[in-house]
Write a protein that binds this DNA or RNA. Structure first.
Lengths: 192, 192
DNA sequence: CTTAATATTAGTATCAGGTACTAAATCCAA
DNA sequence: TTGGATTTAGTACCTGATACTAATATTAAG
């Protein structure tokens, strides 16, 4: 665990990396790892502008708490900027690095898909289940740091079945297209 | 903010609920909210077995830290139980309540999709981008609390393009089917 | 009304993991 | 060898707690 003989520069670089990888390290643990005093670690953190453990935990907790809430199901993926219930809607998703492959920076399809699906659901004013999807196409890979604009349109409604088209564009260029078939739950549930 | 005149039972019930909804409340904030002393809040937490703020933050942070890592991109969605690189693979996803609509308990399509996509990517041993998908079908709605078994198979490889079929079953019944077209990045990137 | 049990509050010591600050010691190079 | 950079030491203080003791309020029962 001990890493002796590092220069200040080297230590600080390594420290930054280490905290980035594991934000839950105390100054004490870090001081043991680098074999320097706690004060040195604190000076390093000051110089690097790295907040204390509790702040780091707080931001991880809060960040992922809301992220998981909005990302893991509760709400819409992306920001709903326009909505004409039952007809159409627009959402914007800022694709960040956490949604992309680390090496290539290409955004994982599941996030693009999730934006499209959640928008499709948002335009239907009911509890829905996805029962059939067809003709999904990813036209261009998307790299992180871009704003994705999704447009959804209800093209047909037959009973409790809704046919929704979603197109996602990146600076005027279409990167995704998908047709979703949604079934409203209220009625569907009783058929079960 | 003040909620006077609650019995111990009522206050503890409400306290539990309140902390569940917002785990980042200090004892002090809670004592103001319920208009009781900090000690009372602490006794209540003891009796209810609710850990202190920092423990709550830690568990939220750690839980979601690893969850976001496995859910928001880094790794595979679901557990990889079998893998024949370049040929086929099997993963199991325990669909929990956080992946489902609150009201209906129906699992959001994006998670099923994510399981399929990440398995498709896992069987290809390269950095890939999703460039075209077709023929996705959700055959049955899935309710939370079930084990989804995904099977992927590479059906064709042409240059840097891989065609992967993924089928997801729930107790022998097919609930999802999708064909993914993946492009290996190394070569594709240079064409850019 | 009084008493006993229950519930609540007060207060102290202690802890972890820090901040902020001062001062001393050590290193390293010209 | 001297001076600046670097590191370490030490103190006071902070937050949000635990653990514990003791006192006070409230409530129900006799």
């Amino acid at each position: 665990m001990v890493r002796k003989g590092l220069s200040k520069r080297e230590r600080q670089k390594s420290l930054e990396e280490k905290i980035r990888k594991d934000p839950f390290l105390t100054d004490e643990e870090l001081s043991e790892y680098f074999d320097v005093s706690i004060q040195t670690i604190r000076l390093d953190r000051m110089e690097l502008g790295i907040p204390e453990l509790r702040e780091r935990m707080r931001s991880v907790a809060e960040g992922t708490y809301t992220r998981v809430r909005s990302l893991a199901g509760k709400e819409i993926i992306g920001e709903l900027v326009d909505l004409d219930l039952g007809k159409k809607g627009i959402s914007i998703l800022e694709a960040d690095a956490s949604m992309a492959f680390e090496k290539t920076n290409v955004v994982r399809g599941q996030f693009i898909y999730a934006q499209a699906e959640s928008l499709a659901i948002a335009v239907i004013d009911a509890d829905v289940a996805l029962i059939g999807v067809a003709n999904i196409k990813y036209k261009q890979p998307v790299t992180a740091g871009q704003k994705l604009v999704a447009q959804a349109e209800v093209v047909r409604q037959r009973g409790n079945k809704y046919f929704v088209w979603v197109k996602i564009k990146l600076r005027m260029q279409e990167v995704f297209r998908g047709k979703f078939i949604l079934v409203a739950m209220d009625e569907w549930e009783k058929e079960e």
